[in-house]
């Protein structure tokens, strides 16, 4: 899921001037009359993707929007126009609000914890292990942390469903051997399941910030550290005064992409808990899926999906605006 933008950060970490707005659009340019004249021919290069985009993204999205304004049980069942009824119902739907509230937990597990841990691990690997024990040790450890990111989610989900199983799961067995006879039902107890899912998500996610931040650290001028060291700054002060500000652009990319991913989490929920027990781990994407394919409330499912898209766009825009503001502040 979230490696999705590892390459997206690519350009950020290259040798560009640091004051350039990141990850966003290419800088606007003034019209160049000589170039404008010959532009018509370029449209052909845009055509293949343009046609595909209309067929696979734009049209389906608009159709989904239309479906969200209807009551439809799917297939050949009649489609009834209901206007904004589904949206009104959604606002009063407790299960939907629970799913949105659970997204906050997903943000903690996918954005907050992995980013903080990722900075610490990357700094430790790059700044300490790499120098003390050699680059190979650091590269090996980095690859280990990254492994969950390249494994199919179906496989990762299965492994954890088995490890967290209440009867003969590894967690339960280890605790029993330690003398704890009544360990929690990790995925079956409504009070615990959400935290178990969060644990799995942290495990899945951690490699992404570690790899990005380690690459970012290679970009930092070693002389900055040398100067700080000569001035007698300890490791923590160097970490706070040099490491963090220098890799700020990458931190931003990780936060943005991970936030979008955390609002879209689906497969881990489907595989680990199916939204249960007692709806305690339901997230918006899973709730939409359930309405589409289990409850045959297609119109309502489309409504949830539309609202989800809006929430994601809104979150992305807020983050982009925040970043632009902090960029400006730094340049002044």
């Amino acid at each position: 899921m979230t490696i999705e933008t590892t390459a997206g950060s690519a350009r950020r970490s290259s040798g560009q001037p640091p004051d350039r707005p990141p990850a966003g659009r290419p800088p606007r340019r003034r019209a160049d009359p000589a170039k404008r004249r010959g532009q018509a021919g370029y449209w052909w290069y845009l055509a293949p993707l343009g046609v595909g985009f209309l067929a696979v993204v734009a049209l389906p999205f608009l159709m989904n929007l239309y479906i969200s304004l209807t009551s439809w049980r799917g297939g050949i069942a009649p489609v009834t126009w209901v206007g904004l009824d589904n949206y009104a119902r959604l606002l009063a739907d407790d299960e939907f609000w629970t799913s949105l509230y659970n997204s906050v937990y997903m943000i903690v597990a996918i954005v907050l914890v992995p980013t903080v841990l990722g900075v610490l691990i990357a700094a430790a690997l790059f700044d300490y292990i790499g120098k003390e024990f050699g680059g190979r040790a650091a590269a090996f450890l980095r690859a280990t942390y990254y492994l969950p990111q390249i494994v199919p989610i179906a496989v990762a989900g299965f492994i954890w469903a088995w490890v967290l199983d209440s009867r003969d799961g590894v967690f339960t067995l280890v605790l029993q051997q330690l003398g704890i006879h009544d360990p929690p039902d990790w995925l079956g107890d409504p009070a615990v399941a959400l935290y178990s899912v969060m644990l799995v998500l942290i495990w899945l996610q951690i490699g992404y910030p570690v790899v990005i931040f380690m690459a970012a650290l290679q970009r930092v001028d070693p002389e900055l550290y040398e100067a700080a060291e000569l001035d007698g700054a300890g490791w923590f002060r160097r970490f706070r005064a040099i490491t963090i500000p220098q890799i700020r652009p990458e931190v931003f990319v990780v936060v943005l992409t991970a936030t979008v991913a955390s609002l879209k989490v689906f497969a881990p929920i489907l595989i680990l808990t199916g939204g249960g027990p007692e709806g305690s781990t339901v997230v918006p994407s899973y709730y939409a899926y359930r309405n589409f394919f289990e409850l045959s409330r297609v119109g309502y499912g489309a409504t949830i999906a539309t609202v989800m898209s809006l929430v994601i766009f809104l979150a992305a825009m807020v983050l982009l605006a925040l970043q632009r503001r902090s960029d400006r502040k730094e340049n002044h």
Partner: peptide, 26 residues
Amino acid sequence: RVRGNTAVVAVLLLATMLPHEALIYP
């Protein structure tokens, strides 16, 4: 740099963020 290139890139970026749920039924 065809006309409206900035807008096109912005739309494509939005598309990469779009949840697949909003496309799947169509």
